[in-house]
């Protein structure tokens, strides 16, 4: 077996156009050797989930700065469950108030990274989470 690459979908749900963070993270994940499927802006939860399935992604990272995070996290996590794909790791970041984070984690998000998180922290966490996920396969 050659090498099993980590495949991650990085998505911008909704109408929010602030993609600096998503792009910086996408590049950092690539530089860490991962394959990043970048969906671009204005994605519906349906599109994001279908992309995850078609691309056989291990994880999906969502970036939201518009305040609509609770809506989108819940929707995406629910739809993954519906599609029998709740093993897919969901993580994200953006402008997300601390008070909302416990709710997102409880709903099934693996991690929520706030502004100022160094990208290596994000990479490290994801590598670990994917290794753990794969060990259960």
């Amino acid at each position: 077996m050659d090498e099993r690459k980590i495949r991650v979908v990085v998505a911008k749900p909704g109408l929010d156009g602030h993609d600096r963070g998503a792009k910086v993270v996408a590049r950092a994940l690539r530089d860490a050797g991962m394959e990043v499927i970048y969906t671009g802006l204005r994605q519906t939860p349906e599109q994001i989930v279908e992309t995850v399935l078609q691309e056989d992604a291990d994880a999906v990272g969502i970036s939201i700065l518009s305040g609509a995070h609770t809506f989108y996290f819940n929707k995406i996590i629910d739809m993954l469950k519906e599609k029998d794909a709740s093993d897919v790791i969901v993580f994200g970041g953006g402008v997300i108030p601390d008070a909302d984070i416990p709710g997102l984690l409880e709903a099934g998000a693996g991690a929520v990274f706030g502004p100022g998180t160094p990208t290596p922290e994000c990479v490290e966490w994801l590598e670990k989470a994917v290794a753990e996920k794969r060990s259960k396969e």
Binding site: E3, K5, A26, R27, L29, R30, D31, A32, G33, M34, E35, V36, I37, Y38, T39, G40, Q43, T44, E46, Q47, E50, T51, Q54, E55
Partner: peptide, 30 residues
């Protein structure tokens, strides 16, 4: 990337409107 072995696969951005159409399957490869 020849350095990290990683890749940013972004071609499907332009085809995303077909995501959700059961008759279309899109796969990105590095």
């Amino acid at each position: 990337s020849p350095f990290s072995g990683g890749a940013i696969l972004a071609d499907r951005i332009r085809m995303q409107r077909h995501t959700g159409d059961d008759g279309v399957y899109i796969r990105s490869m590095g």
